[in-house]
Nucleic acid binder design. Structure first.
Length: 300
DNA sequence: GAGTTTGAAACT
DNA sequence: CAGTTTCAAACTC
């Protein structure tokens, strides 16, 4: 248990240090009412715990913002905002805005490359103010972007929806795509291809799926959360060959997948053939594009 | 690695 | 609420 002084030694905030996101209690702690006996060294640690761990619970942060409003934060926290500022003209630029992923996820910056970072223990007051400003603008600013959606929704969905215009929602620019979820009715995207029945999405997923298990360049680079851009075929190992065996294999895999899909959907033979041919066209296009690019040529 | 594109968040 | 700006990540070369 970490104990944090919030009101001049008379009121203590007890914080469970085990990882639970619930504040345990806000009550008087008689043995610490005398400030001299309060372990001041614990304050920064406690505040770290509080803000780092409980920040995603905006309602609980009212406790902190109230302290900020009436200026009753303890001296250890409410000290000079920029104790190491002489190298700069005025206060450093506050980089604890929503642009920062660490800040947005409720964490302090550690081992980041940010300039004049204020998302640190050293700038607690500025950080608290930024948190308050964010919550004032948007009470759900620190809630996860992807939630369960409505109770009736079986799958998770983006809480705000995306606003993509140019990526077709099939690149990691799209928050829905990045979270590996479909766009939903709340999205305001234009030209969306990130929906269940989208042929472009299916093609992309088929290729990605093959890359993860197959022999394509980049397949072994794929991480669980990021993929290395749009599907790219491995450059030919044998310079003399126009289309490598790997590419042939991959194309066949895509065509087979498309055929299986048509079969599962009980499509007529004619429709199935059409779907496979369309898939073949996309594969050829991809092969040509890759081949031209590898030779430094432009496709007109 | 530098430059460009993209879209979220902030701002007006 | 809509348009613009800022920013950092994704992407391309």
């Amino acid at each position: 248990m970490v104990i944090c002084q919030l009101k001049g030694g008379t009121q203590m905030l007890c914080i469970d240090n085990s990882g639970t996101r619930e504040l345990k209690a806000l009550h008087l702690v008689p043995q610490y009412q005398d400030q001299n006996r309060y372990p001041q060294s614990e304050v920064p640690k406690a505040m770290t715990t509080l803000v780092g761990r409980f920040l995603p619970v905006p309602a609980k942060l009212n406790l902190i913002t109230q302290q900020l409003d009436n200026g009753s934060l303890p001296a250890a926290v409410n000290g000079p905002a920029f104790p190491s500022g002489p190298t700069l003209q005025g206060p450093p630029k506050i980089t604890v805005a929503g642009y920062c992923d660490c800040f947005a996820s409720g964490d302090f910056c550690t081992n980041c490359n940010c300039n004049h970072c204020c998302n640190t223990l050293r700038h607690e007051l500025e950080r608290f103010k930024a948190i308050k400003a964010c919550l004032d603008r948007n009470p759900e600013a620190f809630q996860p972007k992807v939630g369960k959606g409505r109770p009736s929704d079986a799958k998770p969905r983006h809480n705000k929806g995306c606003n993509c215009k140019r990526s077709g929602c099939l690149k990691n620019y799209c928050e829905c795509f990045e979270a590996k979820i479909m766009c939903s009715s709340i999205c305001k995207c234009i030209g969306c291809k990130n929906y269940e029945e989208s042929p472009d999405r299916k093609t992309l997923m088929n290729t990605l799926s093959y890359m993860e298990t197959g022999d394509f360049e980049g397949g072994h680079h794929l991480s669980p959360t990021k993929y290395s851009g749009p599907p790219r075929f491995r450059k030919d190992r044998r310079a003399s060959s126009c289309i490598s065996w790997e590419v042939v294999e991959a194309t066949c895999a895509c065509l087979l997948a498309q055929g299986e899909e048509a079969e599962q959907e009980h499509c007529s033979q004619c429709l199935a053939e059409q779907m496979i041919l369309e898939e073949f066209g996309r594969c050829l296009s991809q092969i040509l594009h890759t081949e031209f690019k590898s030779k430094g040529l432009k496709i007109e």
